[in-house]
């Protein structure tokens, strides 16, 4: 473990992960630890391998070499649903919600609560139970949505992203990964999502944040992992580093 990092055991370890797409080496022996109750930011220039690493952890890509450890035990993720069943939730920047469904449905999609119409009868959606659950989940995360029964397309970009994050937080048991969650948002909305990330972290979940914005990274992250040219070049404690140093690692002016 790199010096200066927290001395608790990591909940997720990506160990010496390599991934190639044809002749292009996307990840080369990258090792990264994620800790419960801490935000780890993954930074690096475009093409550094951030999204590939997230997708490996999300089960969307398999890794060519290396191992993933969850609570110290090796796991194999064959599909995104494998990752989900292990409590790993991913929130993609643009593809996180179904705009024509209402907030409740979006939070519960693929994890619907159903009830039988009569014993052994057909299963129908239990909307009132889901509405109660959704209300509680959003209240716990201090997310304020005027109505949970309108299609998501009527909500603002920030509210939509908040619902997407809430969906992740609601179902994650170990890790929430956010791929540039604030990229399409305005200044105020960005701040609300950052606050939301901190609330998710306080629940004891490990958070992985992919971001291009260093001010935002320094605002919420405990640890910073820097990728450059598909390799990990630095693993820093954000309290013990500066923006200049991180930029140095990202651009290669600092080794």
């Amino acid at each position: 473990m790199s010096p200066g990092l927290a001395l608790t055991d990591p909940v997720v370890v990506a160990e010496r992960v390599s991934k190639a797409f044809g002749a292009v080496q996307a990840l080369q022996s990258v090792t990264m630890n994620l800790y419960a109750g801490q935000v780890t930011a993954l930074v690096g220039d475009n093409g550094a391998g951030k999204t590939t690493l997230v997708k490996v952890l999300a089960g969307a890509h398999s890794c060519d070499e290396g191992a993933l450890l969850l609570h110290g035990r090796p796991v194999t993720l064959r599909s995104p649903s494998d990752a989900r069943s292990l409590g790993i939730e991913t929130i993609y920047q643009d593809l996180a919600i179904a705009p024509d469904l209402d907030v409740v449905s979006n939070l519960y999609l693929c994890r619907e609560i159903t009830r039988r119409l009569w014993p052994r009868g057909p299963r129908v959606l239990d909307r009132s139970k889901m509405a109660d659950g959704a209300e509680t989940a959003l209240r716990d995360l201090e997310i304020n949505i005027p109505s949970l029964k309108v299609p998501m397309r009527y909500l603002s970009g920030g509210q939509r992203q908040a619902v997407a994050v809430a969906r992740g937080a609601m179902w994650a048991r170990t890790v929430v990964m956010l791929d540039e969650p604030t990229a399409a948002l305005g200044v105020t909305e960005r701040q609300h999502v950052l606050d939301l990330i901190l609330r998710v972290k306080r629940r004891g979940l490990a958070v992985l944040l992919v971001s291009h914005s260093l001010p935002e990274v320094f605002e919420v992250a405990d640890n910073i992992v820097v990728l450059r040219h598909s390799r990990k070049v630095a693993e820093l404690r954000s309290a013990a580093t500066t923006m200049d140093e991180v930029v140095g690692f990202m651009t290669g002016s600092k080794q």
């Binding site: 995104p80 024509d100 469904l101 449905s105 999609l109 057909p122």
Partner: peptide, 24 residues
């Protein structure tokens, strides 16, 4: 309106890629 089948139908029509990523 009352089944997951309907919910998935609207979700796919809304955004097929998002629906796939959410697990449908």
């Amino acid at each position: 309106h009352y089944t997951t089948f309907g919910m998935y139908t609207y979700a796919i029509g809304s955004d097929a890629e998002a629906a796939r990523r959410m697990g449908i």
